[in-house]
Design a protein around this nucleic acid. Structure first.
Lengths: 131, 131
DNA sequence: CCTTGCTTCTATAGTGACTGGAGATTGTAC
DNA sequence: GTACAATCTCCAGTCACTATAGAAGCAAGG
């Protein structure tokens, strides 16, 4: 399998695959005589792991750790749990912030009745809000 | 007022103030004979506008537009409303995504009962999830 | 006058996670 | 033979800052 097929199989851009290889998230693949990268099933699995991790919002460094953990099947999985829990807590905090933001934005939009800029509630809200 | 005082007055790092000037969000200030920046009340107001806008999640470009609009008090504020509404919609979409993410992460953590990595639900969930 | 120590200056590079483009090869189908 | 797609490497750009180095300015105390 060449890079284009891996790209299609994992819905990942070719440039991103090369980038992941560069930063060590993917192993350096075997090359053809002319230098093209060739991949096998385990590369698809690995890349899917990375993509799913990213989709769940884990950082590259967290994914690196999770990959390292996954390669030691005998170990206790407490560390993997810790990474996931920390991330969940971060997501929950961000959710709270974002909900507060939405309320503020919604209030701004509601109050404005499309008059002149001089009276615009949106502009006023941004200008006057206490941090 | 020098840059340090503006920094304290707006809870903005000195380097960030210089950065905002560089990209044209703040006017180039008058300098003292020795080259130090000096600011007045309107600079505090402008920077607060920028900071509040950022805190509400507007991009630098959106804030640039809002500043331009705010400087034409006679205009209809429909355009400002449009920027705010688009942003609100984006925030709401992100909120939905993030909530879905939280649910997935919570389910992962719940299912894992701290055994060996080989059986770890967290690792398995990341490995097997369909995009 | 001199030193100490803080503030400010410019210029440059780094962050995270990619994305895009230039310019050169290679592989394939007609 | 030639057109075209796929791939290669290398490097720059994105966003919104943040940090560092090294130089200069400025006020207060000795």
């Amino acid at each position: 399998m060449q890079i284009g097929e891996l790209s299609r199989a994992t819905a990942t851009k070719v440039t991103t695959i090369r980038f992941y290889e560069e930063i060590g998230l993917l192993d350096r693949p075997v090359r053809t005589a002319s230098g093209r990268r060739t991949y096998a099933l385990r590369d698809v699995e690995r890349l899917n792991f990375v993509r799913n991790g990213r989709r769940l919002g884990f950082s590259i460094d967290e994914i690196r750790s999770l990959i390292a953990l996954a390669s030691e099947p005998g170990r206790d999985c407490g560390e993997a749990m810790a990474i996931a829990s920390r991330h969940l807590a971060a997501v929950e905090e961000r959710l709270g912030q974002l909900a507060a933001l939405r309320d503020e934005l919604a209030a701004m939009s509601r109050n404005c009745d499309r008059q002149r800029i001089a009276d615009c509630r949106v502009i006023q809200a941004i200008a006057r809000q206490a941090a």
